[in-house]
């Protein structure tokens, strides 16, 4: 346990491999432009948080990373986003494969109206990741364990996932994402619908997951960003104003607007 506890300052100083690299990303919703050329590098096995006032484009940017914006008809994306060595907006890229590699957890817990087991098994099943039933059980159990939910639900895997509490539901959704073994997990304000205790649990979980996954999290709460992330990007009016190690953003912001935001002048 001890060796996993993050030491922000130490890790922030060392540069890691770049997992996702976004260049000049623009997004239009119909005639309205939401992102104005965003550049951002996301480091591997780190938690990167995206902060900024409402409507600044941080969620939009997050949804670009696994092309969830494709589901919105009027949305068009420009620029380049590289995952490893592929451009994810290359027409040849398969969105199904991409999303299997870049998983997502949403603002509101959205378990399927199925049993807890089936919720987790869904991803591996559609992707054909498990050879047989015991394989599937192993994946489900390990995913629940990684999400820290197994002990709470091990006796009722057949009960509907919608019967869990809000915090448990959200961890179920995280377990569901893990079950596909993605490389990156995107989280869109995962704690905004949860109470403080459930939030603490999810935050703890995020920290543990960093070991194996690259995590990008959008959050409204600056405390949360400070607690869980190693790097932070501050969005404002569809641009990234400032990006860097979390410690530095919160202690010595270079930009006046960042300063104003984190001290609560606007937001």
């Amino acid at each position: 346990m001890q060796d996993m506890t993050p030491i922000n300052t130490a890790e922030a100083s060392e540069r890691r491999a770049i997992k996702i690299s976004a260049k000049e990303v623009t997004v239009h919703y119909g005639a309205k432009q939401a992102l104005f050329g965003v550049d951002l590098d996301i480091e591997e096995n780190q938690v990167t948080s995206l902060i900024g006032p409402s409507g600044c484009g941080k969620s939009t940017f997050l949804r670009c990373l696994n092309r969830m914006n494709d589901t919105i008809d009027i949305c068009s994306v420009g620029g380049q986003i590289r995952l490893g060595d592929i451009n994810i907006y290359d027409p040849k890229v398969d969105v199904v494969e991409l999303r299997a590699r870049v998983g997502m957890v949403f603002q509101k817990p959205n378990p399927f109206p199925k049993s807890i087991f089936e919720n987790i098994a869904y991803g591996p099943r559609i992707h054909g990741l498990c050879r047989d039933k015991s394989d599937m059980e192993e994946v489900v159990v390990s995913s629940l364990q990684k999400a820290g939910l197994f002990d709470e639900v091990k006796d009722r895997l057949d009960e509907p996932g919608t019967g869990l509490s809000g915090g448990q539901q959200q961890r179920l959704c995280i377990a569901r994402a893990i079950a596909v073994s993605p490389e990156v997990i995107l989280m869109d304000e995962p704690c905004s619908a949860l109470d403080p205790i459930a939030t603490a649990k999810v935050e703890e979980l995020i920290d543990e997951l960093r070991e194996n996954y690259t995590i990008v999290i959008v959050t409204h709460s600056m405390q949360q960003a400070a607690r869980v992330s190693q790097r932070t990007a501050f969005f404002h009016l569809g641009n990234i104003v400032e990006e860097g190690p979390t410690e530095q953003i919160f202690t010595m912001p270079k930009d006046q607007r960042t300063q104003d935001y984190i001290t609560g002048r606007f937001g």
């Binding site: 969830m68 997502m104 959205n110 109206p113 991803g123 559609i126 569901r176």
Partner: peptide
């Protein structure tokens, strides 16, 4: 059927028809 269920399924990399058959229709 709430959009969040579709997002949840698509976010895992399900195709549209998989989402419909296994998540939306049962719901």
């Amino acid at each position: 059927v709430p959009q969040s269920l579709r997002d949840g399924s698509l976010g895992l990399g399900a195709t549209k028809s998989e989402t419909i058959k296994q998540v939306i229709l049962p719901a």
